[in-house]
C-alpha cells in the first residue's frame, strides 16, 4: 500500500463520515456547518483526482458560496414553526434499501470499467493548439462545448429572475433581503476593507491564468461575488436595489458578448461559436473577462436572496 493510498483512504473515510453526520445531525445549524467542512474536504479530493479546475470551483462554490447561502437561511429558519411530519420506521427502512440499491448499482458501474477506457483527452489536446489556449478544460468550456457554457449563463440569469420573481409585488424593484451584520463591528469592517483588494487581485489572477492553467471565469467570478457579499454584510456598501441602472447590464454583459462573438463566428469563421483563426485566444479572454463580471454579480445576487425591502426614495 503506497502512502498515497493511505492518504486517499483517510480522506474518503473523513468525507463519508462528515456526509453521514450532515444527514444525521439533529440540529440544522450543525448540519450546515458539516456541509461547509465537507465542501472544503471535497476540494482536496478533486485535487487527488487530478482535476484542479474542479477543485478550485468546489472550494469557491461548494464550500464557500453554498455554505454562506445555507448559513443565512438556517439563521432565519431557527425560530420557524417546527416540522411535525415524522417518517415512520418502515418507510425509512424501505427508503434505505432503495438508496442502498442505487448506490450499489453505481458501485457496480464504477467497478466494471470498459476494457479499453475510451478518452477524448488526445483529441482535446490535438486541437487545443489551434485556439492558443493552454488549459484543456478552458478549451472544452469555451471552444468545443461552448454552446453548453453559453446556455448555462442563461440558466444563471433565469435562476436570478426566478429568485426575484418570488417577491411580493410591493417590493418589486427593491432590495434583496441579505442579512447584514447588525452591530457595527470594527474587526469585521477591518476585514471587509482589507480582504476585498486581495480578493480582487485573486479574481483577476484566476481569470487571467485560466487560459493556460487551471482557473477561469467561474472561479474568478465566484471570488468577486464573495468579496462583494463581504463588503455588503459588513455594511460598507449597501445592498443595491434591482432597479439600479448598472445592475442588469452588468449581469448580461458576459453572455451577450459571448453570444455576439458566437454569432459573428457564423460570418467571420466557419460556424456559430467558431472563432476566426488566430483570434481565438484574445476573443476567449475577452469573453472570460466579461463573464467573470457577470458571474460575480449573478452569484452575489443569488446569494443575497429574494427581494424584501422596497426601494428607498
Amino acid at each position: 500500500m503506497t502512502i498515497f493510498a493511505v492518504f486517499d483512504i483517510g480522506l474518503v473515510v473523513l468525507i463519508l463520515g462528515i456526509a453521514v453526520s450532515t444527514i444525521a445531525a439533529r440540529d440544522a445549524f450543525a448540519a450546515v456547518i458539516g456541509f461547509v467542512v465537507y465542501g472544503l474536504l471535497l476540494s482536496i479530493a478533486w485535487v487527488r483526482l487530478a482535476a484542479v479546475d474542479v477543485a478550485l470551483t468546489e472550494a469557491a462554490i461548494g464550500g464557500g458560496m453554498t455554505g454562506m447561502l445555507m448559513l443565512g437561511a438556517v439563521a432565519r429558519l431557527r425560530f420557524a414553526g417546527g416540522n411535525d411530519i415524522s417518517i415512520s420506521l418502515p418507510v425509512r427502512f424501505a427508503t434505505a434499501v432503495l438508496c442502498a440499491l442505487v448506490a450499489a448499482g453505481l458501485a457496480i458501474a464504477v467497478l466494471s470499467p470498459p476494457d479499453a477506457i475510451p478518452t477524448l483527452a488526445p483529441m482535446v489536446m490535438e486541437n487545443l493548439a489551434q485556439s492558443g489556449l493552454g488549459n484543456p478544460v478552458a478549451g472544452v468550456l469555451f471552444v468545443y462545448r461552448a454552446l453548453d457554457t453559453l446556455l448555462e449563463k442563461v440558466v444563471l440569469i433565469l435562476a436570478l429572475l426566478g429568485v426575484w420573481s418570488l417577491a411580493p409585488d410591493s417590493v418589486w424593484g427593491g432590495i434583496p433581503g441579505l442579512r447584514v451584520y447588525a452591530r457595527r463591528s470594527s474587526t469585521l469592517t477591518f476585514l471587509a476593507q482589507l480582504l476585498p483588494p486581495v480578493g480582487i487581485v485573486v479574481a483577476i489572477y484566476m481569470c487571467w491564468v485560466g487560459a493556460k492553467e487551471p482557473g477561469g471565469a467561474f472561479q474568478g467570478g465566484t471570488v468577486l461575488a464573495a468579496m462583494w457579499l463581504l463588503v455588503m454584510i459588513a455594511g460598507l456598501k449597501r445592498v443595491p436595489s434591482i432597479g439600479q441602472p448598472w445592475l442588469r447590464p452588468l449581469l448580461v454583459v458576459g453572455p451577450v458578448i459571448f453570444l455576439a462573438i458566437g454569432l459573428a463566428g457564423m460570418v467571420l469563421a466557419n460556424a456559430f461559436l467558431a472563432y476566426p483563426p488566430g483570434y481565438a485566444k484574445p476573443l476567449i479572454v475577452a469573453v472570460e473577462v466579461a463573464l467573470t463580471l457577470s458571474i460575480g454579480v449573478a452569484l452575489g445576487l443569488l446569494a443575497a436572496g429574494p427581494l424584501e425591502q422596497a426601494q428607498q426614495q
Binding site: L151, V154, L161, P249, V256
Partner: peptide, 27 residues
C-alpha cells in the same frame, strides 16, 4: 456535416436566448 439549412437550428436556439437576455436588461 452541417446541412444547407442547418443555420435555422442555431436561430431556433439563439433567438429565445437573445430575447431572454435583452428583455432582462431592458426590463
Amino acid at each position: 456535416a452541417t446541412t444547407t439549412d442547418g443555420a435555422l437550428l442555431v436561430l431556433a436556439i439563439v433567438s429565445p436566448a437573445a430575447g431572454v437576455l435583452l428583455s432582462f436588461v431592458l426590463g
